[in-house]
Amino acid sequence: MAAAPAGEVRVFDPHPLNWLFITWNTMEEPVRTDHEGFLAMALAESATWRDELTLEVKVRAGARFQDGDSCTAHSIKQNFDEVQRWAVPHPPGTYLNFHPDAQCDVEDDRTCVFRFPQPDGLVLGKFRGFHIASPSFWHTHGFGYKKTGSGEGHW
């Protein structure tokens, strides 16, 4: 069993992606990267192609947001629907965009299915930039919603 969290670290990080590093240290995505940079499951317990246009994502059991809300397949869909509203939501570029006609359907609390109009072999990498926020985040801040009135370039 891991030791209880202890201590404080103070960081000076002038990197221009500091905003993204803070996001990655505070939010989860369906996948993360390991020390070597390779994709590993995070909020997703698994991601399985049912066919070349249909990707099934199982959400990790018992996942919770910081405010105590459960993170479920409904959370994935909510965040998918939010990101799909914008043309260039991610500052690094549109390579992180899902196809504008992609859909996300919830099958049960832990299962959602992404349906693409054409094969997208890059989608697991795109999941790295697919931050999953709690309902209260969307009701209060949103990515840039409250401060700038737009989600463009704020993911």
Partner: peptide, 23 residues
């Protein structure tokens, strides 16, 4: 910018620090 640990995180990647401060 102050990050505080989420003690309810349910994987072995639960933070090992109580707090991180970006200066």
């Amino acid at each position: 910018v102050v990050l505080e640990v989420n003690r309810d995180h349910n994987t072995d990647r639960c933070a090992r620090l109580s707090q991180v401060v970006f200066r």
